[in-house]
Simulated scan of single mutants.
Amino acid sequence: MVDASKAEFIRRKLGFERVFKNCSQKIWLFHSFDLNCEVLLDHVQCLHVKLNMPWLEVPLLASFIYAKCTRSEKLVLWDCLRSLAINIHSPWIVGGDFNAILHSVERLNGAMPHAGSMEDFATTLLDCGLMDGGYEGNSFTWTNNRMFQRLDRMTYNHHWAYFFASTRIQHLNRDGLDHCPLLISCSKNQDRMPSSFRFLHAWVLHHGFKKFVEQNWTSSIVGSRLQAFWVKQRRLKQALKWWNKEVFGDIFHNLKVAEQRAANCEIIFQQE
């Protein structure tokens, strides 16, 4: 059993307000106060919740999975998902570590996958009306450094696909772990929104930051007090964007380059 204080420690470290754990202590769900989370089913292999968010007009249903290893134990989970699906008529996403694959190509090295287990999994998704969400990135989500498998995935029903214009699932780098994290991004509108201004904490650690801000803010400007304040803010925002690019460079691009380099190394490791 996991000590409750450990979950609270990780919650505070990650910056969330609440944490839920299922009865087996294998599934942890962290969330902030602007998301209302109601646990509908606490199962050994599944945590089924209803999510209400102020910016969405309908609640979302989510089932987080941490499946057992043996085929007989997973049959209990498959039956649980079927019983849930009967009464679901709203957007529903189901994902996590299913400890199962759908096709033989989802395993690299190791013994031949069990056809019956793959059929059990595929039949369950079909019976529940769940479709595989696909992925971007590495083809495999788990490894023991000898065998590679796609054990983790996200699936959703047609209500989810209709409600969200796009659902993007990324396999992030494992970074030394046996499982890779999955990042799910959902959008109701496919139109590209203007980029938002982001203040980076690293700026305040730079020796020239304070002086740069003071020089920009104290520069004279024409206008009333409130108007001058608004214009100064707007001017400082544009100046900080330029300063960040000159001093730090495009850190988001640099991060993507580093992540891609790590992903390429993972693939080379798998192949060789």
Rank of each mutant, 00 (worst) to 15 (best):
M1K: 09
G15H: 01
E17K: 12
R18T: 05
F20V: 14
C23M: 09
F30N: 02
H31V: 10
E38L: 15
E38K: 15
L40M: 10
L40G: 04
H43T: 01
Q45P: 04
Q45L: 13
C46P: 02
C46S: 12
L47M: 09
L47F: 01
P54Y: 11
V58W: 08
P59K: 03
L61I: 09
F64A: 03
K68L: 13
T70H: 10
K74D: 01
L81R: 03
R82S: 06
A85I: 08
S90L: 10
D97T: 07
D97M: 02
F98G: 02
L102C: 08
S104V: 12
V105P: 00
E106D: 01
H114N: 14
A115L: 15
G116K: 04
A122F: 12
D127Y: 06
G134M: 03
G137M: 04
W142I: 04
N145F: 11
Q149Y: 09
D152T: 01
A161F: 09
F164W: 06
A165Y: 11
S166I: 11
T167N: 08
T167Q: 07
T167C: 10
R174S: 06
R174I: 04
L183T: 00
L183F: 08
D191I: 15
S195D: 12
S196F: 10
S196R: 15
H207Q: 13
N216E: 11
W217C: 02
S220D: 14
V222R: 10
L236T: 00
Q238E: 15
Q238K: 15
E259A: 11
A262R: 15
Q270L: 12
